[in-house]
């Protein structure tokens, strides 16, 4: 009996096992550096380009708000899906997420944002609200009438023959004022994204 107890203790009361029993610890929960987490500010000042809002695939996950004298992107963590597109789209690099910003700068990748104006002809009533509401239009032709008629060919859009005609959608800044002013939701700003890369000269990618 004593022999078997001795055997038992020798077998199971090993010093490392006992230590493990009393001082068992889970692996430290460290977020790895490559994990693409929620976007965080890098400290650069926001230039209010709003591209982060425009490319965000989760509606309402990011918005740009006033803070003091400047602007600041605000991330709503319940909505954010941590895709990192805002980090890539920001032309000034004010957000970072995991290694996204770092690799972007190292590899010269970027997302170019442009805007297209899509008008549903079936819904458009030709009221001209979008034409008069557009801030870019107002700068180009201050004389735009209430009906949206304009004789200036440089405006983004104008009402011709009772229908909105888009002349220069490359001038659109994506502010979506026209979308909110449209009574029938006939006009929509399409965000067109293009992934590009310009590797630094002399660098071997």
């Amino acid at each position: 009996m004593t022999a078997s107890l001795y055997w038992y203790l020798r077998e199971f009361a090993r010093i490392e096992w006992v230590r493990k029993f009393f001082f068992a610890r889970t692996a430290p929960l460290v977020t790895p550096a490559y994990f693409r987490g929620f976007p965080e500010p890098t400290g650069k000042s926001c230039q209010h380009a709003l591209f982060c809002m425009m490319v965000c695939p989760a509606p309402g996950a990011i918005d740009v708000v006033h803070e003091g004298d400047g602007w600041k992107p605000r991330i709503h963590k319940g909505h954010c899906i941590r895709c990192g597109l805002c980090v890539e789209a920001c032309p000034n690099g004010i957000l970072k997420s995991g290694r996204v910003l770092e690799t972007m700068q190292a590899q010269g990748t970027a997302l170019l944002v442009s805007f297209g104006i899509a008008i549903d002809r079936d819904l458009c009533t030709g009221c001209g609200n979008c034409v008069t509401a557009c801030p870019v239009n107002k700068q180009i032709d201050a004389q735009i009438g209430a009906g949206g008629h304009s004789s200036n060919d440089e405006v983004i859009m104008r009402v011709d023959d009772g229908d909105v005609q888009v002349l220069h959608d490359e001038k659109c800044t994506g502010c979506k004022t026209c979308e909110t002013s449209c009574p029938t939701r006939a006009i929509q700003i399409a965000r067109i994204l293009e992934g590009v890369q310009q590797p630094a000269a002399g660098e071997d990618p």
Partner: peptide, 9 residues
């Protein structure tokens, strides 16, 4: 070797 993004809309 080369680029990883060619662009295109």
């Amino acid at each position: 070797k080369g680029i990883i993004r060619g662009g295109g809309v």
